[in-house]
């Protein structure tokens, strides 16, 4: 079986004078890609261009050697998309909504019935199939959202900030679900929540202010942070001073003081101990002005 190749070539998007994406070049093959960036970094715009909702100002997207603009319906038949804020027809039941989307995806009735049952089972909504989606919680709506995205067994699955607004339990459930369905397809998962892509991402793409900063395997990216993440034990009174001077990650209160996790290219103080970096440190390293969720 041929490997899928989704290539983004010199992609730029402007809204008026505002450049949201600036000359992005990325290649995706099968596997999960975590697209990491702060709010306003251009993640959602990139996603929307990849799902043909937005047209790029310049550049192109190529799937297996063909421009997606030329592939048109053929391309849309290969993709599954979960928008950032999934809106559903509130008066529809989960089953009816999925059957409707299945028909818009070109599935015949029998095919759709089987697929809908299978996916409701996968997302754990079988017993709620006859309930109106308007009564669902945020997590349940997201599960309906991922089910609709999978109806056509997409070769390219694009999910835009899928865990925003979900509680930790739902978030873990969603991450595991995504991991389970990620074989034999390209999964692009845009997020600013680092724990979403922990363990499941084959590569991480870092976007900052519309520019591609890094694209590499998590281990390689974390390897670049070796000797850049430190733990320091300080007193209560020094906390403010350290927060002003360094990029501070975790703050843990110990019996003998406060333990800070500091991200710094150089050793912050003589007593600082180098520690193993994690994805939160990576995020903080690139997006120090942003909040970690």
């Amino acid at each position: 079986m041929d490997t899928l190749h989704l290539v983004v070539e010199h992609l730029s998007k402007k809204f008026g004078d505002n450049t949201v994406l600036d000359d992005i070049n990325i290649e995706f093959t099968e596997g999960v890609y975590g697209i990491l960036g702060a709010n306003g970094s251009g993640k959602s715009t990139l996603m929307r261009i990849l799902v043909t909702v937005l047209k790029p100002t310049s550049g192109k997207v190529i799937l297996d050697g063909e421009n997606i603009k030329k592939l048109d319906e053929e391309y849309r038949n290969l993709i599954g998309y979960l928008p950032q804020e999934i809106a559903l027809y509130k008066s529809f039941t989960a089953e009816r909504f999925l059957m409707y989307i299945a028909s818009l995806k070109g599935l015949n009735k029998n095919e759709a019935k089987n697929k809908v049952s299978e996916l409701l089972e996968l997302v754990g909504l079988t017993e709620y199939r006859k309930k109106k989606v308007g009564t669902f919680s945020g997590g349940m709506k997201q599960r309906v959202g991922i089910a609709q995205a999978l109806l056509n067994d997409p070769k390219v699955l694009i999910v835009d900030e899928p865990t925003a607004g979900l509680d930790p339990k739902e978030r873990i459930r969603f991450r595991n679900l995504l991991s389970a369905i990620s074989s034999n397809r390209i999964v692009l998962l845009s997020t600013h929540i680092v724990s979403d892509i922990d363990f499941i991402a084959k590569e991480i793409v870092i976007l900052k202010q519309g520019k591609l900063i890094k694209k590499d395997a998590p281990d390689n990216l974390l390897g670049q942070l070796n000797e850049k993440v430190w733990t320091v034990l300080i007193s209560e009174g020094e906390l403010q001073q350290y927060q002003n001077k360094f990029k501070v990650g975790n703050i843990i209160r110990r019996e003998n003081g406060i333990e800070l996790r500091i991200i710094s290219d150089t050793k912050p103080i003589e007593t600082a101990q180098a520690t193993i970096p994690n994805l939160e440190d990576l995020y903080l390293y690139y997006f120090d002005k942003e909040t970690i969720l």
């Binding site: 929307r48 799902v51 043909t52 909702v53 319906e73 849309r76 038949n77 993709i79 998309y81 928008p83 804020e85 999934i86 809106a87 559903l88 027809y89 509130k90 989307i101 818009l104 995806k105 070109g106 609709q148 056509n152």
Partner: peptide
Amino acid sequence: FKSRDRGIAELEMTLKHS
């Protein structure tokens, strides 16, 4: 235009039937 007014147009734009 219910899909546009209820925020579902973004999803419907990505489906096989345009």
